[in-house]
Each structure stands twice: as C-alpha cells, then as structure tokens.
Simulated scan of single mutants.
Amino acid sequence: MLLDSASMYFRAFFGVPEILAPDGTPVNAVRGLLDFIARLVADYRPTHLVACWDNDWRPQWRVDLLPSYKAHRVEAERTGEPDVEEVPGPLEVQVPIIREVLAAFGICVLGADGYEADDVIGSLATQARQPVDVVTGDRDLFQLVDDEADVRVLYIARGVGKHERVTNDWVRTKYGIDARQYADFATLRGDASDGLPGVAGVGEKTAATLLGRFGDMAGIVAAALDPDSDMGPGPRGRIKAAAAYLEVAPTVVAVARDLDLGPADTRLPDQPRDLPRLADLGHRWGIESPVQRLTDALAGR
C-alpha cells in the first residue's frame, strides 16, 4: 500500500475540525491521518506500507520543461492569496509531528530529492512485483493502474470512507480510455490545478476520441502532421498549434517509474517500533486515541 501522504494529510486537515494539543498546537491533520491509515490497514491488511513524500513538490526539471507547471501556487504564496494547494500555517506545523509519529510506529517514509511523491509512488508501484494499492486523491496517478500487474488506485477524493477502487474498467467507464492512456489524456485536456494549459479547444471528449483512434500522443501528433491521415481539420489544426506544448508536456505529466530509492524496510509492523517514544508523542500532542486505534489496527492485521 502506497500512500500519497500530502494528499491524505491535506484531506485530514480540511476534513477534521480543529483540535488542539495541550500546548495549543493544532493536531487535527495528525489525528485524521492516523485514523485514515488505521482504517485502510484494517480494511485491506497490507503486508507492506510506504508513506510517500514530496521532497520537492515542484521539481526544477519539470519547471524547465513547462514554466507554467504549478506556477499559480507559487504566485498565490507570493501575493498571500488563499490557495487550497498552499500549505496553511496550522497544517505546516503538523507535518513534522506526522513524520515523528510515523517513525515511532515504524512506518516507512520515502521521498527522493528532486522528485514528487507521485514519482516515488510510480517507481515503487512499477518495481513492486506484488499487488499494489495506491491511496490518493490525485487523478494523475490513474496512469499507474494496471490490471495485469495488479496495481489499482484507492481514490479518496470523496473521503477515505467513501473511496473508489480504480481499475482499468473504472477508468474506461469514466473517461472512455485505458488507464495507460491517462497521462496523454491529461496532457491533451489540461489541468488548471497543475498549471497544464492543455490543447486549446480539446476537452475530455475530444481527447478520448483522439486517443481511441490514434492510440497515444505520438500517434496523434503523427496523424496531425500527415496530410493523408483521416484526422479532421479542426483537431489537426489544434494539435499542430500546440506543437511546442505537446513536445514537453508528456514528460512533465508522466510520473517517474525508474527511481532508485535504495534499500528500505517497507514491511508494515504488527506493533509500533518504539512504544516509549510513541507514548510520549501521544501524551505530548494529545493524540492517544488515534495512536491506539492505529496500534490496534496493526495488531489485528
């Protein structure tokens, strides 16, 4: 089980009412995340679990290829404008606490310098050689769904308790494409939340139609440049006009799958690794109840 950690603690922060530790520090994201993990462990009983981390939420190599990538989030931070993607102060102070608590539990946390959590997830899922559940509220990770390799997404956009199990059939029913085409689909359609402009005039329906006829981005671009292809004049003109964007965007959108993350013990323990430290953290931050619930979930696994 691979956790998109930031996706989960953002949802915990915004979904759980403010709760303060004895010293007044907010801990709603800490409590919510622990309860999310406890529920997932109890329901799915994974043998291995990794909390995947954003060591770099906006890697420079992606920005070099596409300067608009997540640029609106930087601007929101610079101007002080509210933005759901910006880490609010009351959440920011909780992130180190989350790291401490996960370490005391013995839950593996993995990141990679110069890469996002999505890239860590993509590499682990591709290299796992065992069934994988990816827990995220981010549609970009639908590109990893692979029925043959037994990789699926537990999509938590509506909440952990109402999550959807995303398989290739789910993606095809929802978007009219196969999961392996999702990165190209997102590139064509665009995604304002990531600063991806997409191809002007190409929405989800047209993107799905083009991928259905021409297979992938390379096939679509080749058809647009081939005067003898049966691509209509409208889509042809739009694809050709977006040539510069389409040259770089697929690399930006595709998650890395080949990172060398080094040796790591990803096994999920059946009891906390450091009970005295965990007890101290539970008392200090007033999170004894969610700590106990996750402890019970590990033991019941």
Rank of each mutant, 00 (worst) to 15 (best):
D265C: 12
W57A: 08
G212E: 07
A218I: 09
Q130G: 03
V171A: 02
L298V: 09
A125T: 08
P235T: 10
R99W: 05
W170D: 08
P88A: 13
D226I: 03
V151Q: 01
F14T: 12
F214R: 04
V63A: 08
G195S: 02
P269V: 11
T206V: 15
A103W: 01
L298Y: 03
R189Y: 02
L65P: 06
A71P: 01
A149D: 11
L124K: 10
G282V: 10
V120L: 08
E92P: 04
D138I: 04
F214Y: 15
R293E: 13
G159D: 00
G161R: 07
V87E: 11
L3I: 14
P67H: 12
W61S: 09
F10W: 14
L225I: 03
E81F: 00
A299Q: 07
W170H: 15
F10D: 06
A244F: 00
K240A: 10
W170F: 15
I220C: 05
R152P: 04
D230A: 15
P197K: 14
D194Q: 06
R172M: 13
I97Q: 09
W61I: 02
A125E: 09
P131K: 05
V84W: 14
L102K: 04
Q60R: 14
W170S: 11
P197Q: 13
T79G: 00
L275Y: 00
D119N: 02
P90S: 05
V151Y: 05
L210H: 03
